[in-house]
Simulated scan of single mutants.
Amino acid sequence: MLTVAVTGTTRAQGGAAARSLLAAGWTADLAAMFAYFTASGLDVDVAALHRDFPEVGRHGFPDWAHAQDRTAILTPGPMPEAARH
Results as ranks from 00 to 15, higher is better:
13 Q>P: 01
74 L>Q: 11
20 S>W: 08
72 A>Y: 02
58 R>A: 13
77 G>M: 05
14 G>Y: 01
48 A>T: 07
5 A>G: 12
2 L>A: 10
65 A>P: 01
13 Q>I: 01
1 M>T: 13
5 A>I: 06
64 W>E: 10
19 R>C: 12
83 A>D: 14
19 R>W: 08
17 A>G: 03
33 M>P: 00
39 A>W: 02
37 F>D: 03
18 A>K: 09
6 V>I: 12
28 A>Y: 09
84 R>Y: 02
80 P>C: 04
63 D>E: 15
60 G>I: 00
50 H>V: 12
73 I>M: 11
22 L>F: 02
27 T>Y: 04
65 A>M: 08
1 M>L: 14
18 A>C: 11
22 L>S: 09
16 A>V: 03
44 V>N: 06
48 A>L: 12
2 L>F: 15
48 A>K: 14
44 V>G: 08
41 G>W: 04
6 V>P: 01
26 W>Y: 15
37 F>S: 02
69 D>V: 01
19 R>P: 07
10 T>C: 05
35 A>P: 00
56 V>G: 06
7 T>Q: 14
57 G>Y: 02
20 S>Y: 07
16 A>W: 00
82 A>T: 08
28 A>Q: 14
81 E>R: 10
28 A>N: 11
53 F>R: 15
21 L>M: 15
48 A>S: 10
44 V>R: 10
10 T>I: 03
34 F>W: 12
50 H>M: 10
76 P>I: 01
75 T>F: 01
59 H>Y: 08
35 A>G: 08
35 A>K: 00
5 A>E: 12
54 P>T: 05
63 D>W: 04
16 A>D: 13
7 T>M: 06
29 D>I: 04
55 E>L: 11
48 A>C: 06
20 S>M: 12
62 P>D: 13
66 H>T: 11
37 F>V: 01
41 G>I: 01
65 A>I: 04
27 T>P: 05
43 D>I: 02
57 G>P: 10
33 M>S: 11
44 V>P: 04
30 L>G: 11
79 M>H: 05
80 P>S: 06
10 T>Y: 02
63 D>T: 13
28 A>I: 05
13 Q>H: 09
22 L>G: 07
9 T>Y: 04
23 A>C: 11
67 A>Q: 09
24 A>E: 15
52 D>W: 00
14 G>M: 00
12 A>C: 05
15 G>E: 14
64 W>K: 07
46 V>Q: 12
9 T>Q: 15
12 A>K: 11
84 R>C: 10
66 H>P: 00
